[in-house]
Computed example of a mutant assay.
Amino acid sequence: MAIIEVVVPELSESVSEASLIEWKKKVGDRVSADEVLIEIETDKIVMEVPAPESGVLVSIQQGNGASVTGGQLLATIDTSAAASAEVSAPKQAAPQQPAPIQHAPAPQPTAPAAAAVAAAAETAAPSVKVMPSAAKMMANLGLNPADVVGSGKGGRITKEDVRNTHPQPAAKS
């Protein structure tokens, strides 16, 4: 069994953390090399993390909404599962229905911050979109999304909007 680790790509110098937006695959799903597994958002960009090799996604270490840093483990892929499927496939004469894949339940964020992020996002009016990083900041600062004016696409609330609403004291050098 060959296990490959999927890690957060190195972030730029000015970015210390990122938020996981959405997993595109679930545990047990087959993945192809370079297929998008998850979207990650920093305060500057949203990037896609591809599968480094083909195989079966065997574990997800961080759930949607989690904060991560560069190089942190996100998931593992079993590459030998894909190899055995490719070897046995040509031997079959008749096409068959794919077997249903049993999915393990998605890991639930356990950190109190994750719950606060979810609560901040849910308290927003249905028409107001809050970026995950902004929701986390609002939860940490105790702000209600109704108190922040969104300047992002379609009125989305960004980290910069939260900073403008609740300026932080200057960091000591």
Results as ranks from 00 to 15, higher is better:
1 M>F: 04
1 M>G: 12
3 I>A: 10
4 I>E: 12
6 V>H: 05
7 V>Y: 02
9 P>N: 07
15 V>M: 06
16 S>G: 06
16 S>N: 03
17 E>S: 13
17 E>F: 08
18 A>T: 03
21 I>Y: 00
23 W>P: 07
24 K>H: 13
25 K>H: 08
28 G>D: 06
34 D>R: 13
36 V>P: 12
39 E>L: 09
39 E>S: 07
39 E>W: 04
39 E>K: 03
40 I>M: 15
42 T>Q: 03
44 K>W: 02
44 K>V: 02
46 V>N: 10
46 V>R: 06
46 V>H: 01
48 E>A: 15
49 V>G: 07
49 V>T: 07
50 P>L: 10
53 E>Y: 11
54 S>Q: 15
57 L>T: 12
58 V>G: 05
59 S>R: 09
60 I>S: 09
61 Q>G: 10
61 Q>D: 13
61 Q>I: 00
62 Q>I: 01
63 G>L: 00
64 N>S: 07
65 G>Q: 01
67 S>G: 00
69 T>D: 07
70 G>W: 05
71 G>N: 06
72 Q>W: 01
75 A>L: 12
77 I>W: 03
78 D>L: 12
79 T>F: 02
79 T>S: 15
80 S>H: 13
81 A>R: 08
82 A>D: 14
83 A>F: 05
86 E>V: 09
88 S>Q: 10
89 A>E: 15
89 A>H: 12
90 P>C: 12
91 K>S: 05
91 K>P: 00
94 A>W: 07
94 A>V: 13
94 A>Q: 13
97 Q>P: 02
99 A>E: 12
99 A>P: 03
100 P>V: 14
100 P>M: 13
101 I>K: 14
102 Q>Y: 11
102 Q>I: 15
103 H>D: 00
108 Q>I: 12
109 P>S: 09
110 T>Y: 02
110 T>M: 09
113 A>Q: 15
113 A>E: 15
114 A>Q: 07
116 A>W: 03
117 V>W: 05
117 V>A: 10
124 A>C: 06
125 A>V: 02
126 P>W: 13
126 P>C: 11
127 S>G: 00
129 K>L: 13
130 V>P: 00
133 S>I: 11
133 S>T: 07
134 A>D: 03
135 A>I: 00
135 A>F: 00
138 M>V: 00
139 A>P: 08
140 N>L: 15
141 L>I: 01
141 L>N: 02
142 G>H: 08
142 G>R: 07
143 L>T: 06
143 L>G: 05
145 P>F: 02
149 V>Q: 14
152 G>L: 04
153 K>H: 08
154 G>A: 10
155 G>E: 07
155 G>W: 08
156 R>N: 04
157 I>K: 06
157 I>L: 03
157 I>W: 06
160 E>H: 04
161 D>Q: 08
162 V>N: 06
163 R>A: 14
164 N>F: 01
166 H>R: 10
168 Q>L: 15
169 P>A: 12
170 A>L: 11
171 A>R: 11
171 A>F: 11
172 K>V: 11
173 S>G: 08
